[in-house]
Amino acid sequence: MHTMKLQVNETIYSQVLSFINQFQTNELSLVEDTKQEDYIVSSIEEVQKRVFDAESNGNYISADTFFSDMDKKIEAL
């Protein structure tokens, strides 16, 4: 058995996790799943940069979509 350590960008994380989950647990298992906490910001400039980057990359959803998705998940519980 081999052990690998990967750093996966948030943009492809769900795809990588989906790929891993296709295998039987005796073939492949997730040993550790950690995330660098990058949501803490120390300045308004950092917030502005993150918003600009998200808008530039299309890596965001609208507030309406977010709350609609959250409502659906809560209703499914």
Rank of each mutant, 00 (worst) to 15 (best):
M1T: 08
M1A: 11
H2T: 05
H2I: 04
T3C: 06
T3A: 06
M4V: 02
M4R: 14
L6I: 10
L6E: 07
V8S: 05
V8W: 03
E10F: 07
E10N: 13
E10M: 10
T11E: 04
T11L: 00
T11N: 03
I12M: 04
I12T: 12
I12N: 03
Y13F: 11
Y13N: 13
S14N: 10
S14K: 07
S14T: 08
Q15N: 14
Q15R: 14
Q15A: 13
V16W: 01
V16M: 04
V16I: 11
L17R: 14
L17Y: 09
S18V: 01
S18Y: 07
S18T: 13
F19N: 15
F19Y: 15
I20D: 11
N21L: 02
N21G: 07
N21W: 00
N21Q: 12
F23S: 14
Q24D: 15
Q24P: 08
Q24Y: 08
Q24I: 03
T25Q: 05
T25S: 08
N26M: 06
E27D: 06
E27R: 01
E27G: 00
S29G: 07
S29F: 15
S29H: 11
S29R: 13
L30T: 08
L30G: 02
V31E: 08
V31W: 11
E32N: 11
E32G: 02
E32M: 13
D33F: 10
D33C: 06
T34Q: 05
T34D: 02
T34G: 00
K35P: 02
K35Q: 14
K35F: 11
Q36E: 13
Q36W: 10
E37P: 01
E37M: 01
E37Q: 09
D38L: 13
D38I: 15
Y39I: 12
Y39V: 11
Y39T: 14
I40T: 15
I40E: 15
V41E: 03
S42G: 14
S42H: 12
S43G: 06
I44H: 06
E45C: 10
V47C: 03
Q48H: 05
K49H: 08
R50D: 00
R50I: 12
R50G: 00
R50C: 02
R50T: 03
V51L: 15
V51C: 09
F52E: 10
S56E: 14
N57Q: 09
G58V: 09
N59T: 14
N59I: 05
N59A: 10
Y60K: 04
Y60I: 01
Y60Q: 05
Y60A: 04
Y60N: 06
Y60C: 01
I61C: 09
I61P: 04
S62N: 08
S62L: 03
A63Q: 07
A63W: 04
A63C: 10
D64R: 06
D64F: 09
D64A: 10
T65K: 14
T65V: 08
T65A: 14
T65D: 15
F66E: 07
F67P: 00
F67W: 07
S68H: 08
S68M: 09
D69C: 08
D69G: 08
M70S: 09
M70T: 01
D71I: 03
D71M: 14
K72R: 08
K72F: 05
K72C: 01
K72E: 06
K73P: 00
I74F: 10
I74A: 05
E75N: 12
E75C: 09
A76E: 11
A76K: 11
